[in-house]
Design a protein around this nucleic acid. Structure first.
Lengths: 333, 333
DNA sequence: CGTGAAAATGTACACGTGTGCAATATAGAG
DNA sequence: CTCTATATTGCACACGTGTACATTTTCACG
């Protein structure tokens, strides 16, 4: 009854203010904004009216304190210059928001940086963590698991126990690349991958090489420093004699094709190229890159599924979801 | 002194536990982890030791409750398929983390979606909001400002009062594009932009057209639906007679070039093209696109500067920071 | 040793919310 | 109308932390 007392600054309106204005107890206000709580229709209406007039919003941080759930999910990512990573992060954040989570995006390029930001994450009692970084700090992942924070690795190695994972079928991808190149007529194959590759790149590379071995086809390994565009360009200089190349990702494959074209002499047309990820640029008519698609939208969904089921059942054994790959035929193979 | 009682689950270790184990008051624990607080070296050491043994972490959410500062910053973004947006978000999140903020990334593609997620944001008392979305909901921006939440728009229109902004020098960009094309010998110019363009695109387009008018050079406007790759490809069919084109962003320019090449007859070589943003693909040797660079790293820094100064001085008049553009000469102009 | 200032510590309250429990209001059956 | 089962409400406590205030300890200085 003490006048409207306008909300001066900084959104100080609290449930107490609403309760007083609506002439009810503060508990009634809380229950109005809590699903499945017992409030009569008329008090609910009074509360909602008062809340609207005052511009009241439930403080979710205070709520999280007593609910033990923050609805924050840490998203640890690196290498956003790779368009596939950008797609991946977009899919993940969209799926999270759609399910009423709040994604905290943590760029983690160097290993030391990842360590730092993930440490920070432990201070906000996040509901879970999704990691797509190349080098997830093993010790920290274990620490999250120990702290009871669900953690899901996307396309990462299985060196970390008791952590759920979503992985693309990298072995199938490697085999598919090999058979596709051979069916296209290539006989002297090569695979381009970083010397210290990520887990996925290593799997693809190994499956590719062993598939070539099975088919009794030559398979050379060309090591680069990083799986990016620039190193793809440089790798084009080291393909003498090859007539079919598998790049472990499209980002590098675009560089490789540009490198081949720069060499001239029809080098680009003489060599069949296949990539991986199906980034938007692969479909650009400057490349029309034949590639292997991994479903980043499905991966995001499954990762979140693992997260929520781990929240419900914290002690179930670790689970691994494998997503299928599909060949996208274009011009280069 | 009641034994180590292992931290069973869910990180339940609280400052009370640490205090008991260290044999001090809970306030001493709090002060140990608060900068500029008065604690003796020996108690601090005892506290840190006990905290390490128990695996204690300060609960920042609880801290934010009393500090009135959450250190969360909402980042509203759309169109992450455009590589420039990906760069921008990477820069923004990196800068935020470097300054000890936590970025909450909210993808907002449709207007309705942006409205929803920004509404959610008001429930977490975020320290600020950065908006790079194309269509920031005016009403909501005002609501943030009214609630005392600092909000900074990056490359957005000035239709919203009392909101800080960082904008690229779009007028200079338009003029620079025009003069560069004319100096390169072009006389029949065109500009490609969306019919309902974003604020930046409109500014660039208008400055381009009026610069052409000043130089007494023909300037045609080619309208497309969206400023993306696919519509760039389509726009290539509508350039009859032009010998110089300004695409309001590189993303679309790449499509335009691919479209010109597909037409054949040396169409691509006959037309000078200039883009905007200097996305990584512009430097790829398939394009070597002459373009106008806007400094996304500087923009991120300045946006955060505006944010923190607005936090300190909530009632200062709105400020606008303009970032410079630079021409990047490559092959296409 | 005495004394005053400065440093350190503990107590108690505050931040904004959800919810168990007991008390009360309501309604339906007889 | 009476009795009972049910829906609604308010009180009080809990979540985990920072800090003003009063109190105690430390310490340099005379």
């Amino acid at each position: 009854m003490g006048g409207p007392e306008k909300p001066v600054r900084g959104h100080k309106v609290t449930s107490f203010d609403v309760a007083r204005r609506a002439g009810v107890s503060r508990a009634a206000v809380s229950r109005t904004f809590t699903p499945n709580a017992s409030v009569s229709p008329e008090t609910r209406e009074k509360v909602i009216k008062a809340a609207k007039e005052l511009g009241y919003r439930v403080n979710y941080l205070a709520r999280s304190l007593i609910n033990r759930r923050s609805d924050f999910v840490g998203v640890v990512a690196a290498g956003m210059d790779n368009p596939f990573r950008a797609m991946q992060i977009e899919q993940i954040t969209k799926s999270l928001v759609r399910r009423n989570f709040r994604p905290i995006l943590l760029p983690a390029d160097q290993g030391e940086s990842a360590d730092h930001v993930m440490n920070q994450l432990l201070h906000y009692n996040v509901s879970g963590v999704l990691v797509t970084s190349d080098a997830p700090p093993t010790a920290l992942c274990a620490e999250f698991a120990a702290a009871g924070v669900p953690i899901v690795l996307i396309n990462k190695a299985d060196t970390i126990p008791s952590v759920d994972r979503v992985i693309s079928d990298n072995a199938a991808a490697g085999r598919l690349a090999a058979t596709t190149l051979v069916e296209a007529g290539a006989r002297r194959l090569a695979v381009v991958a970083a010397a210290a590759p990520s887990y996925t790149a290593r799997c693809r590379q190994q499956a590719f090489v062993s598939a070539c071995y099975s088919m009794q086809v030559e398979a050379r390994v060309i090591s680069v420093a990083v799986n990016d565009y620039d190193h793809g360009v440089a790798a084009a200089e080291r393909l003498e004699g090859a007539d079919g190349v598998f790049c472990v990702n499209d980002y590098m494959a675009c560089g490789l094709i540009d490198g081949l074209r720069r060499k001239g002499n029809g080098a680009a047309e003489a060599i069949r190229v296949i990539g991986h990820d199906d980034i938007p640029q692969a479909a650009w008519s400057a490349y029309e890159l034949t590639t292997i698609r991994q479903p980043s939208d499905l991966q995001a969904e499954q990762a979140i599924n693992l997260l929520v089921s781990r929240m419900d059942e914290p002690s179930t054994p670790e689970r691994v979801e494998t997503t299928p790959v599909t060949l996208v035929r274009r011009r280069t193979a």
